[in-house]
Design a protein around this nucleic acid. Structure first.
Lengths: 334, 334
DNA sequence: TTGTATGCGTTATCAG
DNA sequence: CTGATAACGCATACAA
C-alpha cells in the first residue's frame, strides 16, 4: 500500500509537500502540484484515514445514529442513510452506521469518545432529546434529521409540515372538494402533532370542513377508518392520509364496500418515500418526502460545521413533490 | 479525552500493560488487571480507534457495501444493515455504510486501501461478481449476503431457497391444495432462477400441479396476474408469491372480481421482511426472511475470518418462519 | 514556495 | 508477568 512517503519520493518533493498539495492548505506551485498528482495516480495512492484522524486530531468520519426500524419508517430511513452516505463520500468523509434501539446514552458516549468520529447525525429526534443535550455539552458537532422543541440553535433538516399539508389539501381543494378527513397516527410525538395542526389549518385556510380519524400503522386499521368514515361522515369526498400502510387498508376497505376510488372518494397520501412504488391499485396519489436529499443535506450542513464553513442555511425545511396518480379526481359533488 | 497513558499513570503501571490488560493478548496478574480496569472506569476511558488501526495495522471497522435501493429490496436491506451494525458493535467493531450504485470498482478499491477497513460485507451479489474477484485477489477479508456461482471457497450467508419454497408449498399441500401457481419476477438474476426451480421441485415433490406467472414489482402487475389466473387457470386453489408488492395487487384484484380470499383461493408470500407488518386486508400469510439475523451472521463470520478464528460454518443458509395469517385456508375442493 | 521535525494514541518487539 | 521503546502514516508549526 503506497504511502505519502512513496509519493514524495517519486515526485521528488518532500513528504509535507504532498500533504499540502492534496489538502490545499497552503499555496503550491502549479508545477509541483502536477508532479505530485501524477505520482499519486501512478502509485494509486489513497490516504490512510486512521493516520489522518490521529495526526490531525479530527476525523473524517461521521456517525449516523439509525433507528432500529419498524416498517413504516424503515423505507424512509434507508433513503436518508443512502443520501447521507453519498454526501459524506462526496466530501471525502465516511459514514458509520450506529444502530441504536433507544436513545442509548452509553452508545452516544462511546461514539463521541472513540476518536474516530468527527460528527454525528441524529435521526428520530424527540421534542426533548438528551442525546442532543449531551452532544451539545461535549462540543461534538452534530446535525439532526428532525428537530427538538428548542431547535433554534442547532443544525437540522426537517419536513416543512405546513408546506406538505398545504400541498396536499390545496390539491383536493383545486379538485373541488369541500369536506375532507385525514388519517393520522397518534403516537404523542412531535410529528403527529405537527401534521395534525398543519392539516387542520390548511383546511381552514381553504374553507374546508375537516375531520380527524386516528389509525395505527396497519392495513386493518385503515380498513376500519374507511368503515368509520363511510358511516359517520357520508358528506366527505376527500381524504388525506399520513400513513401509507393504513392507506392501503383504507383503499382495500373501499373496494370491499363497493365505493369507487377516485370517482366517489379521493385519497392522497402525504409524507411517503420518494421512490414510492405502486403498492396499490389504483396507484396512490402522494406527496413525497425527499428523504435522500434530506440525508445529503443533513451531512452537508454537518460538514460545514465541522470545517467551520460559514453558511446561513444551517436549518432547512423540505416539502417534496405532489405526484398525481390514480386515487384523486374531481369531487363527486362539484 | 483520557488516553491510555492517563490510565497507566492512575493505575501505576506502564502503558503497554494497560493495552494487554484490555486486549487480553498476554497474561496479566489479577491484581494489575483490577487496578487497570478501575482506572479505566474512573477516567471513563475509551480506546481510540484511529490510533489502534494505525499502530496495529488492522482496523476494527467493517464496510457494508449497500445497494442504492429500489423499493423492493429496501426494506430487507435495512434489516440486514441493522443486524450487521449490531453484530459489529457487539464485537467491538464499527460498521461503515458504503452506498454504491453499481459494482463500482473504484469505490471498492478506495475502501480496501483506505487503511481504515478491516473487512467488507457485500450485498446484492451477482452470479459473476468482479468485486468478489478483486477482494479475493487483494486479500481483503470479506463475506457476502448472497453468493456467486463459484461461492464454494467464500464466506456467505444466503437464503435456503429450497427450504423456503418447501415450507410455503408444503403448507399449501397440508391445507389440501393440489393445483397451485406462483408469482415471480423474471430479472435474469440468480434469485429468480433459484426460487423458480425451488418452487417447481417442491410442487413436484408433493405431487401438485404448478403454473408460473411472471410479474414485475408493482401492484398493477399483481392485479393482472390475478386476471390471468382467473381466466386461464380456474382449477388453481393456491398461490405462492415471491414479491410482496405484486401480492398486494393480486389481493386487490381478487377483491375487485369478487373472489374470496382465503375461502376460494389461498395466497402465501415467501421471502418477506421479518418485521413485515400487516400491509393488506386480510393480512398476508408469509414465510419471512430472517434478514436481521443474516446481517449479524454475515458480520460474525467475517470477523472470525479477520481474527483468524477457525469455525466450520463460514457458509450459512437461512429459511425463516412461516407466519400464518388471513390469506390461507383449506382448499375449496378438498 | 518548499522542506524538517514533532507528535497524535496505539500495538508490537524487545528486554528484563 | 511487566516495562521501555520503536514504528504506524499523516498534519502542522516552524524554519529556510
Amino acid at each position: 500500500m503506497a504511502t505519502r512517503a512513496d509519493v514524495a519520493k517519486l515526485a521528488g518533493v518532500s513528504a509535507s509537500t504532498v500533504s499540502y498539495a492534496l489538502s490545499g492548505e497552503r499555496t503550491i506551485s502549479d508545477e509541483t502540484r502536477k508532479k505530485v498528482l501524477k505520482a499519486v495516480a501512478q502509485l494509486d495512492y489513497r490516504p490512510n484515514f486512521a493516520a489522518g484522524a490521529l495526526a490531525g486530531g479530527k476525523s473524517k468520519t461521521i456517525a449516523l445514529v439509525s433507528p432500529s426500524g419498524e416498517f413504516g419508517i424503515a423505507l424512509i430511513a434507508l433513503e436518508y442513510i443512502n443520501g447521507a452516505g453519498e454526501a459524506a463520500r462526496a466530501r471525502g468523509y465516511h459514514l458509520v452506521i450506529w444502530p441504536s434501539q433507544e436513545s442509548e446514552m452509553t452508545e452516544i458516549k462511546t461514539l463521541a469518545k472513540s476518536g474516530m468520529i468527527g460528527g454525528v447525525v441524529l435521526m428520530e429526534i424527540k421534542l426533548e432529546d438528551e442525546r442532543v443535550a449531551y452532544l451539545d455539552r461535549e462540543n461534538v458537532p452534530f446535525s439532526m434529521i428532525g428537530r427538538t422543541a428548542d431547535s433554534a440553535k442547532y443544525s437540522y433538516v426537517d419536513r416543512d409540515f405546513d408546506g406538505v399539508a398545504d400541498m396536499g389539501v390545496k390539491y383536493l381543494k383545486d379538485l373541488g372538494h369541500k369536506d375532507i378527513a385525514f388519517l393520522l397516527t397518534d403516537r404523542e410525538i412531535g410529528v403527529d402533532t405537527k401534521f395534525s395542526s398543519a392539516v387542520i389549518s390548511a383546511a381552514k385556510k381553504y374553507k374546508m370542513s375537516c375531520k380527524k380519524i386516528k389509525v395505527v400503522n396497519e392495513a386493518s386499521s385503515g380498513r376500519e377508518a374507511f368503515v368509520t368514515l363511510n358511516k359517520k361522515y357520508p358528506e366527505i369526498t376527500g381524504v388525506v392520509s399520513l400513513n401509507d400502510i393504513a392507506t392501503l387498508g383504507f383503499l382495500s376497505g373501499a373496494k370491499e364496500f363497493g365505493v369507487d376510488i377516485p370517482k366517489e372518494l379521493s385519497v392522497i397520501a402525504l409524507d411517503t418515500p420518494q421512490n414510492h412504488i405502486e403498492m396499490s391499485w389504483p396507484p396512490l396519489t402522494t406527496v413525497n418526502l425527499p428523504a435522500h436529499e434530506m440525508g445529503e443535506t443533513a451531512v452537508n450542513i454537518l460538514i460545514d460545521q465541522i470545517e467551520k464553513i460559514e453558511k446561513k442555511d444551517r436549518q432547512q425545511l423540505f416539502v417534496g413533490d405532489l405526484v398525481k396518480r390514480g386515487t384523486t379526481a374531481k369531487a363527486r359533488n362539484s
